[in-house]
Design a protein around this nucleic acid. Structure first.
Length: 542
RNA sequence: CGGGGCGUAGCGCAGCCUGGUAGCGCGCACGGUUCGGGACCGUGAAGUCGGAGGUUCAAAUCCUCUCGCCCCGACCA
């Protein structure tokens, strides 16, 4: 995207969108608007600067490190909007009086500001970005379900029209609260999320949520005994030293919860803990303990700790309900073999491990696939959290005041653009889908010094625009190779070359960027040939 | 927040270890040749070496502080 001149980076996670990139965003936004309007959405624009008060009312003023906060000249506290539930609830509190005012779908395409801990992946995770965010206001949960489903359907159409392959997956509701949430995920190695999917039953979820049933190892008939493991600290080292399957070991991790204090977390040796799952199990955000804290609470250094005889509460992954394992002995250089959770120590069980490809689906047992994805959209059922906090109520048919039931829905146009680049690009550069390409036709006169070539190219350019195709004319005085390479890098769906064959035979070449298929036509047939290509490619694209 | 790396011409980088004239490629300007898949020759312009302080006769180079950016992890409403 940098090379193609779509964006420039101003600072960490802060980008300028150049003309070509801007055109892509405009195309995406136009599609988003059409589909939002089609489900009854009404576009509004909310402020980027918010008074602190509404965030204090919702309880989100404190505890969000990503929030940019500032003060005005009078010392009043403000923040930069990172999302707009509060403003919507404020708005609803004064616009919605009666059940007759419901339902509503209000949306905007507006800049969001989030002081991300680590902006990365180019335009995929930035501190300032535009989001289409919409909010539904409904009288009850059944109506919310309808609004939610309407959004899900609109989102599918939006991503399909933008040429993206996506999966819809269950996701964590996070601190948004609420009952249900889904994410729209575009498969790509460049993504930052992973999803688990079951081909057999259709189960699909973000790995932060996905339940999987691991394959158990062959269980040996161990009796409980302490074994020396000199120098072995990691699971790999312990398993190698004892010559056993790593799945017969338990990884013991000490975490510290701000309120509950230290907690010992156990997962099978080959598994990794998903901290989001731990958060849900503990009820508050935990951090890994420092080495000195480990020694303080467990009396042993990291690498030798285990669950036996410890005084801190223990949470074990569901996987460990069965089996007998090797655990740290809380004594440097020693482990204990033949330990059974629940029998040899007390603990409670929760789903804690990150799902791994090949493990059984939590629903049907068939093997799960795990795929890396870019999150391009999400939808949340919020319930009444914000409407109650901000006083957004309506009078129902019986004259009773009830809180408005809310939903919240986001789409990132920049992520759509980036995901399209990632999913469709080839060795030579970007391959834009027709619907969001910055231009449709790239016209190349091979030699701009040849009057006839340049004249024909200009004629083609004008004809395209006249007939609804957006064209660019590469009339730079460059050698043809330079222009061809740039055309490919930019990824405009069709390139029209006006060169020797025009001079000799009066034909120009209309060439598909994606398939590289080329047809030779006369100047007045370029538009028709382009349309034909578009028709073919739209029907064969996934 | 934890760990690592990098700031030198518009862009990409070398030079730093071992202090002493700031260099290469691309791009840019001019002239010429070339002209259907990122041409070639010649000439030229262009740098507070991220910033501040220190050591030294002398600092891009050594030391201290600081700012910025990148990568891995955590976080991600």
């Amino acid at each position: 995207m940098l090379r193609a001149g779509l964006v420039r980076q101003l600072a960490a996670g802060i980008f300028v969108w150049l003309p070509l990139g801007q055109r892509v965003l405009d195309k995406v936004n136009a599609i988003v608007r059409e589909e939002m309007n089609a489900i009854g959405g009404q576009e509004i624009t909310m402020p980027v600067i918010h008074p602190a008060e509404i965030w204090k009312q919702s309880g989100r003023w404190d505890g969000i490190p990503e929030m940019f906060k500032l003060k005005d000249r009078h010392g009043r506290e403000m923040c930069l909007g990172m999302t707009h539930e509060e403003v919507i609830a404020w708005l609803a509190s004064r616009e919605i009086r009666s059940y007759r005012d419901l339902p509503q779908i209000w949306y905007q395409i507006q800049t969001k500001e989030r002081d991300e801990a680590r902006p990365r992946s180019g335009v995929l995770r930035t501190r300032e970005f535009v989001m289409k965010d919409s909010y539904t206001l409904d009288p009850d949960d059944a109506a919310l379900d309808r609004s939610y489903d309407a959004h899900a359907a609109a989102y599918r159409r939006i991503f399909e029209r933008c040429g993206l392959r996506i999966h819809v997956v269950q996701s964590d509701t996070g601190m948004m609260g609420g009952h249900s949430a889904h994410e729209f995920m575009a498969p790509s190695a460049a993504g930052e999320d992973e999803i688990a999917m079951c081909a057999a039953c259709g189960y699909a979820a973000n790995v932060e949520l996905a339940r999987s049933v691991p394959t158990p190892p062959a269980l040996p008939a161990w009796t409980r005994e302490e074994v020396a493991t000199p120098g072995a600290r990691t699971i790999a080292e312990v398993a190698a030293y004892l010559n056993i399957d790593p799945r017969l070991t338990i990884k013991s991790l000490l975490y510290v919860a701000p309120k509950a204090g230290p907690v010992l977390v156990l997962v099978r040796g080959d598994h990794s803990l998903h901290e989001r799952k731990l958060l849900r199990a503990v009820g508050e955000e935990c951090r890994a303990a420092h080495p000195d804290e480990v020694r303080e609470h467990l009396g042993a250094p990291v690498g030798s700790v285990g669950p036996l005889g410890v005084r801190v509460p223990i949470i074990a992954d569901e996987t460990l309900r069965q089996g007998t394992y090797v655990v740290g002995a809380n004594r440097e250089g020693f482990h204990v073999r033949g330990v059974t959770p629940g029998r040899d120590f007390e603990c409670r069980f929760a789903d804690l491990h990150t799902a791994v490809a090949g493990e059984g689906c939590g629903q049907c047992g068939a093997p799960l696939a795990v795929e890396r994805v870019i999150e391009v959209g999400n939808i949340f059922k919020l319930g009444t959290k914000f409407s109650e906090a901000l006083g957004a109520t309506y009078l129902d048919e019986s004259g009773r005041a009830r809180p408005v039931v809310m939903g919240s829905y986001g789409i990132g146009p920049a992520r759509i653009a980036a995901a399209a680049v990632e999913q469709l690009a080839d060795q030579d550069g970007i391959v834009w889908p027709w619907a969001i390409a910055p231009f449709h036709v790239y016209v190349v006169p091979v030699s701009v010094k040849d009057r006839a070539q340049l004249g024909a190219a200009e004629e083609i350019y004008a004809q395209c625009w006249k007939q609804g195709l957006e064209a660019v004319l590469d009339d730079r005085d460059e050698r043809p190779g330079v222009k061809f390479k740039d055309a490919e890098l930019l990824g405009i769906p069709v390139r029209v070359t006006v060169g020797n064959s025009f001079v000799k035979e009066g034909v120009v070449e209309v060439r598909s960027r994606r398939t590289r298929q080329e047809r030779r036509v006369s100047v007045d047939q370029v538009v028709a040939a382009t349309r034909a290509l578009r028709g073919e490619e739209s029907s064969t694209s996934t």
